[in-house]
């Protein structure tokens, strides 16, 4: 059989997709069949695999040196009109305090990334942090210039009292939290709203942009920073640290309260068939709960059933209308 040019181009494309890992399973079958048709098909396939193995000429780039050039700088020290004076002063400083400036300007940073939220990580001052999956925490190695940290994502801190370095601060993109020995959660996961929740102790939360926007939080209080404003309120749920402690506690609460907490813990959608069901009440304590098991227990004690469709769980049934 004669191959038309179109045919042969298609086989090149399929082999390329195979090499790049882009082949669908149907195309894979098609390609395998074609390879077995004739020895020259197999040899074309083999030679393209060989070609793919040829390494690129090696060029290397000094990433660390580059990072020093592009990393965010502190505020510029001098205005534009004073650039020359600024440069002269900079030179003098460099000459006089070369080694010291170098150490001061290029602190060695340490970085932690959250993998398992329930396992605490130790900080250099033996404070502890629980980092939620994907959260990133950065601070200077050994807290050489104080206990200052930068966070994106969600984290719970247990801060150890330290008389030589009493201040402990956590910055996010929009707020700063200052602490004196305490336990609290900072959450930047919602890009429109950063929140701080205090389990015990006392913290001050301050806007990064306007320092006068600040609140002091005590045990059981939380603050939400949204659109430049800080709002303080009481923590209503006993489960605000559930992501970290891996336990859920419900004490005679209605489903209107319980379902949002289950949704946030398990990262699923849960709906009720009829709004009346939201008034069903439920008491339970779960340690390391699993979703199916939790819903089963909830359904048994409230007389409901649950079904799943497209990732949403729906509670239905006669429910607890007879209950007080």
């Amino acid at each position: 059989m004669n191959r038309t040019p179109d045919d042969i181009n298609r086989w090149y494309e399929l082999i390329a997709k195979d090499l790049a890992g882009e082949l669908s399973s149907a195309e894979k079958l098609e390609l395998n069949q074609w390879r077995q048709e004739k020895p020259e098909h197999e040899s074309m396939n083999a030679s393209l695999h060989d070609l793919w193995k040829v390494p690129e000429e090696a060029v290397t780039f000094d990433e660390d040196a580059a990072w020093m050039k592009v990393r965010p700088k502190e505020r510029p020290m001098f205005g534009i009109g004073m650039r020359w004076i600024g440069m002269a002063a900079g030179l003098l400083l460099l000459l006089g305090l070369g080694w010291w400036l170098k150490q001061w300007q290029l602190p060695e940073m340490q970085r932690m990334e959250g993998v398992a939220a329930h396992i605490p990580l130790w900080l250099p001052d033996s404070s502890q942090v629980w980092l939620d999956k994907g959260a990133v925490l950065e601070f200077e190695k050994n807290f050489a210039h104080g206990r200052h940290l930068r966070l994106s994502g969600k984290a719970y801190f247990e801060v150890k009292k330290n008389t030589t370095q009493p201040e402990f601060s956590v910055k996010t993109q929009d707020i700063q939290v200052q602490v004196l020995g305490t336990g609290f959660t900072v959450n930047t996961l919602d890009s429109a709203c950063t929140s701080v929740e205090v389990a015990h102790g006392k913290v001050r939360v301050q806007s990064e942009e306007k320092k006068e926007v600040s609140v002091i939080l005590e045990k059981g209080e939380k603050a939400e920073f949204r659109a430049g404003q800080l709002k303080k309120s009481k923590i209503e749920s006993a489960n605000f640290r559930a992501w970290q402690t891996q336990s859920l506690l419900f004490e005679d609460q209605d489903l209107a309260h319980i379902l949002p907490e289950l949704e946030s813990y398990f990262q699923v959608n849960i709906e009720v068939e009829r709004p009346e069901l939201l008034s069903c009440r439920f008491t339970a304590h779960f340690e390391k709960p699993a979703l199916a098991e939790t819903l089963q227990i909830l359904c048994i004690s409230t007389g409901l059933q649950f079904t799943e469709s497209n990732g949403t769980f729906i509670l239905s049934g006669k429910g607890c209308s007879s209950n007080p």
Binding site: W67, E138, S152, Q173, T188, S191
Partner: peptide
């Protein structure tokens, strides 16, 4: 739609991940 870098940490991460590869591409 999303903001490109939430904060310095995500900027740093993007740099670590892509700097060398971007250099190779431009090279």
């Amino acid at each position: 739609t999303q903001v490109i870098f939430e904060d310095e940490a995500s900027y740093r991460q993007a740099f670590k991940l892509h700097y060398a590869a971007l250099c190779r591409m431009v090279y």
